[in-house]
Design a protein around this nucleic acid. Structure first.
Lengths: 205, 205
DNA sequence: GTCTATAATCAGATAGAC
DNA sequence: GTCTATCTGATTATAGAC
């Protein structure tokens, strides 16, 4: 509830928002780097440059801290999907999305999703923002997948859900880090290779 | 160094070995279930049914505990590879290996590899048994990959190292768990689908 | 080698002054 | 809201009896 005397309150809110954005950026990076379990709240505070207790004024727990980062990534994915031309061939859009997630991962900005039994996982499942985003993303991708299958650009033999999961999984594919560690290829080359294995497969065509 | 008076010493050693096998089996399962960070030594001891202090008589640290499990998996992979017919088409052998790792994962026996910066990772890098096994596996797979590419069964455009990493990555592909959680498909169907996405790709052929 | 009991450390979370 | 200092509990690891 803000007064009508001008943008004074809004300024304070902007400061708050900026600080929280900085926190989430740090969390996002650490989450990508070492995963939820290995990330410590002390580290987050140190990287942000504030006291740990101050963190807890913004986020009530470590899980909520991580969830905020996951929600932000999901938002970005939604934004990216929304901007893709619905007139383009569905397969092109799908490739564009996978390329985007891979570039995110190569930049160290893709938090590793908790596939295992984690406290973060249950927190996320109860987070409306995250789940809504996930549904939205899944719906959009699902529509393109079915369209691509209908025009036989994607294999119609695979269940659409299997294709969807495969696209999600490529966003956290360890192959990207392996190839990057090797140091033999540029990021752009790595993306193209993994993109090729994903859509074209390993077998010759 | 055993005496020559008979199998007496061997019996005690067998008991010891059996106990350690039981420990490693538990560690392997927990590692697959929750990963290294989330697994606790207390859990391991409870599952095995012995006191935690007894565990530390067998293995000097949590890292070594996990490393022993990783080494065992690597040994099994080596055994499996050795038993494959070198006369068979290389692509068939590669498919067989990937199928084997996927079945392992679906049975909950594939420890999630520490792709992230983990204390386990550095321990493994200094573990001769593990690294030797990894080299052996990589060499065998690498030879088949190059042979398959030479006869154009695998795409010759991809660097062999990229193919190798892709095969490794499929061993811990989260798509398998996703599809299993959905409950719509039998394990065998899931394996065939992921095998298809891996070798044939998502695009129609 | 196995146990009970305990040390030592670390990490998530909080109290209370400013 | 931010800080310092502290609490609390969990977890790795060990001591010492049997």
């Amino acid at each position: 509830m803000r007064s009508n005397t001008g943008p004074k309150v809004s300024f304070k809110e902007q400061m708050l928002q900026a600080r929280e954005d900085a926190i989430i950026a740090v969390v996002n990076q650490l989450l990508a780097e070492k995963g939820f379990e290995a990330m410590t709240v002390d580290e987050v505070a140190a990287h942000v440059g504030i006291a740990k207790a101050s963190l807890y004024k913004h986020f009530p727990s470590k899980e909520d801290l991580a969830a905020a980062a996951m929600v932000r990534v999901m938002r970005r994915a939604q934004d990216f999907l929304r901007d893709l031309p619905d007139s383009a061939p569905p397969l092109d859009n799908l490739r564009a999305v996978v390329r985007w997630t891979m570039e995110l991962k190569l930049r160290g900005e893709m938090p590793s999703l908790p596939s295992q039994n984690s406290s973060l996982r249950t927190t996320l499942m109860h987070n409306k923002d995250y789940m809504d985003g996930l549904m939205d993303v899944s719906d959009r991708l699902g529509a393109w997948i079915e369209a691509a299958q209908a025009q036989r650009a994607l294999s119609p033999d695979l269940p659409a859900i299997a294709v969807l999961y495969t696209l999600f999984a490529r966003a956290c594919d360890p192959v990207l880090e392996f190839l990057k560690m090797g140091g033999l290829y540029e990021d752009a080359q790595i993306v193209e290779m993994v993109l090729s294995t994903c859509f074209d497969g390993l077998k010759a065509r």
